[in-house]
Amino acid sequence: MIATAYAIPDVLVFLTSALLILVGAVGVLAMRNPVHSALSLILALFGVAVAFVAQSADFLAAVQIIVYAGAIVVLFLFVIMFLGVDRRETVRVEPLVGQRVFAGVGVLITVAGLITLFARSHWVTGAIAVSSSGQPLATGSKNVTQIGTAVFTTYLFAFEATAALLIVAVVGAVLLARRERAADAEGSQS
């Protein structure tokens, strides 16, 4: 266990971020309307950003908001509005048979894993001893240096592999999208 004494402001910030994350996460599941679910997701992402700031990871907090809240959820909303699925729906059909059972098992495994992590390691990041002294590795603008060094030296292979994965995904998406349009054109000609 970690026997560090936390100051009251830190605890308050943690409680706020935890509340934001939990309310947002539950909202994503509980809201009937997909757009409201997306809004709840933004709330949860903001909570995570607050948690990052509390851990002195300002850069990660900014990136969290710019990339996830600012771009990815916008794309979710774009798709929701574009496909017109923004109506209240009752899910009666199961596209994948038995997915509820698998979902239950998945939740159990995740929760068990989280509990194990919480019991054995740091309270937010889940990493075992991010820094041994209890102080953050970098503060303020040194964040960027720290992350840049880690990404482009230690974890370079993982970084490049992720980039390649994204390129493959984009090429695949373009190929699939082209096929649909080609099929349409064929249908209209004949």
């Binding site: 300002d58 900014a62 990136v63 908001i65 809240a69 603008s141 964040n143």
Partner: peptide
């Protein structure tokens, strides 16, 4: 703030 100009990007995202 230490994130400085990134705040502008984040806010325009919001």
């Amino acid at each position: 703030p230490p994130i400085g100009i990134l705040l502008m990007l984040a806010m325009s995202g919001i």
